[in-house]
Design a protein around this nucleic acid. Structure first.
Length: 235
DNA sequence: GTCCAGGGCCGTT
DNA sequence: AACGGCCATGGA
């Protein structure tokens, strides 16, 4: 029996259910008439190699001062921005990355995310990747979770699980991404894919945090029946 | 006190 | 192309 991404998706979905990942503070954005997608974008930058709990503190700081929108980030003093996002770590480079990003959004799209996400996915991806501080995972997280467009996000967790099962032992980001997208495209319609990519990435992150850790705890892992790493434990 | 988290950049080999 | 050092805070 061949192990596929769609099989893993089914097992994890049955075990953990719908995760409704990357929920944003809709009350804040309704009250301030701001774009909730921008909160996702900021979160994607701030969470680089950083625990989400620390990112939440930074986002809270930005909201308390009503700074969580494109216009206000572009106008805020860089030192003040650093101070607000300090809890998320790497605060100097992340402040610069946010500044560069909002400059790009203002210059090219008049600060309107509709204009950005209206474009082709490949164009959005290339533009985001051209910005210093936005690599493949951040770009794809923005496209998927802010743009609600079908692209599969690969991260350190995805790689680790792919190696252990093994599902796909490629190292390059693009090859793993292409593998997941090609496989999943065979079983789901175009309309379903965004939802599937969104959910599967969230499920993978949860699995990696609970079971497939750096030092794995395989005993109760929902994937142990199809995982050769688990099988080798008992050789 | 040590480890590590939802990466990415840059310099060296 | 691949690897190592670096960036920084806060929770376990």
């Amino acid at each position: 029996m061949k192990i596929t991404p769609q099989k893993i998706y089914k097992i994890l979905l049955k075990k953990f259910g719908d995760l409704n990942w990357w929920p944003i503070d809709i009350n804040y954005h309704e009250k301030n008439n701001s774009d909730p997608r921008f909160e996702v974008i900021v979160g994607a930058i701030l969470t680089q190699n950083t625990a989400w709990s620390n990112v939440e503190k930074a986002l809270t700081n930005l909201k308390l001062l009503n700074k969580l929108d494109i216009k206000n980030i572009s106008e805020i003093n860089i030192n003040e921005l650093q101070d607000l996002i300090r809890p998320s770590g790497f605060f100097k480079q992340k402040a610069k990355r946010l500044k560069d990003l909002v400059s790009y959004l203002k210059d090219k799209y008049h600060g309107d995310l509709n204009y950005l996400f209206y474009r082709d996915i490949s164009v959005i991806r290339e533009e985001l990747l051209s910005l210093k501080g936005i690599g493949p995972e951040t770009a794809d997280s923005i496209i998927l979770y802010a743009g609600n467009l079908p692209i599969f996000v690969v991260d350190a967790y995805t790689r680790r699980i792919c190696q252990r099962i093994p599902l796909n032992t490629n190292i390059s980001y693009d090859e793993i991404q292409d593998y997941f997208e090609t496989e999943l495209s065979r079983n789901y319609t175009k309309k379903e894919l965004t939802k599937v990519y969104n959910e599967l990435h969230a499920l993978i992150v949860l699995l990696a945090k609970k079971y497939c850790k750096k030092n794995p705890e395989c005993i109760e892992c929902p994937l142990k029946k199809i995982c050769s790493y688990y099988a080798e434990l008992f050789q």
